[in-house]
């Protein structure tokens, strides 16, 4: 461990704001990249299932 305490860890010397901004935004981008295709897949499968059901009725 290279920090004395948790407050010390949050402060990151004088660079806390920079380090946490960089990590925070990067985490948000990575999470968005995972969420978008998963949500798109769910929506597409729902739409396709509805379409198939409608066509099988005709």
């Amino acid at each position: 461990m290279s920090f004395e305490s948790f407050a010390d860890f949050l402060a990151m010397g004088k660079h806390g704001l920079y380090v946490w901004t960089a990590y925070g935004i990067s985490l948000a981008v990575l999470a968005l990249n995972v969420a978008l295709p998963i949500l798109a897949r769910r929506r597409y499968l729902q739409d396709e299932a509805r379409r198939l059901r409608r066509e099988s009725k005709q």
Binding site: S2, G16, Y18, V19, Y23, S26, L30
Partner: peptide
Amino acid sequence: LAVGTVWGLAFAPPDYQQGNSFRIIYIH
């Protein structure tokens, strides 16, 4: 990613010139 982030943020030693701002290297 979990191991690398925790290791890089908390356990790696600070840079002798840049201090803790160098930890951004682990995503940059």
